[in-house]
Design a protein around this nucleic acid. Sequence first.
DNA 1: CTATCTTCCTGTGCGC
DNA 2: TGCGCACAGGAAGATA
Length: 293
Amino acid sequence: MPELPEVETVMRGLDAVLTGRRILAADIRREGLRWPFPEGLAARLAGARVLGFRRRGKYMLMRLSGGDSVLVHLGMSGRMVARPASQRADAPVAHEHLAIEVAGEDGAEGLRVGFVDPRRFGCVDLVPTAAEDGHRLLAGMGPEPLEDAFTPAVLGAALAGRRTPIKAALLDQRVVAGLGNIYVCEALFRAGIAPEREAATVPGARARRLVPEIRAVLLESIEAGGSSLRDYVRADGGLGFFQDRFRVYDREGEPCERCPNLAAPPGTRPPCPGVRRLVQAGRSTFFCPRTQR
DNA sequence: CTATCTTCCTGTGCGC
DNA sequence: TGCGCACAGGAAGATA
């Protein structure tokens, strides 16, 4: 589920309910996810105040009083689920591996926020707030696509000399941070670039177009609350609806909206066979074979 | 250095 | 309605 827009949406939801609050307790229900939870996690969480949030690529960072930040990656199936703290006993949530409880404001009931992740590809770590970007999982990450530092020149330099398909290059978090399978497919469609083309051979004009197209698709999705495929994305249980605006992702066989192939006269070959699917590096790629070159 | 493959997990949807 | 199988939003780590 979670690529940059989904992580941004989740983070904003957490910010709204957690920032400024004091953590009363942490409930750690297994040893870890992808890796063991860090030593002393519960102790650092309990009693700390939540100072704020930041996103880096697909990672979220929750700053705590005391000088630590909690680093979280949602993996493939991670969600954050918020509910009244009183529900904890009578309605256990499946695959809730870690949760924190915060006090309510003005006498309101407290809140429990749980990290739910059936596939357990997510991860949680602690890092000194002053050294967040030095964490081994964040060091070496490419530019944030929504920041000014992500320019055609920067992207061009990252793609130069790379003979890997452009699809795989854009999934590489060292090239640009936060893109995943959905948004790479969508951005390549918008920029008119064939996913199998070698990264270094994408013509300059279209390579430059990638920058605004990546930004546009990410911003549109954030505005829609991200994409909700099989899970709720938002901490408040609300659904993102960007999945309704996919132009190619998961649309194999459907007509490509850029090609008027439905209007082809009878007996003539349609100019576009519609959205195709291919497998690259073990992952589905969706694209229009006529308009992506 | 780069590129490719395997691996970690559970849930879901489909064909039979 | 059950069973087996393919596939799912990620990416680290091993290997060539």
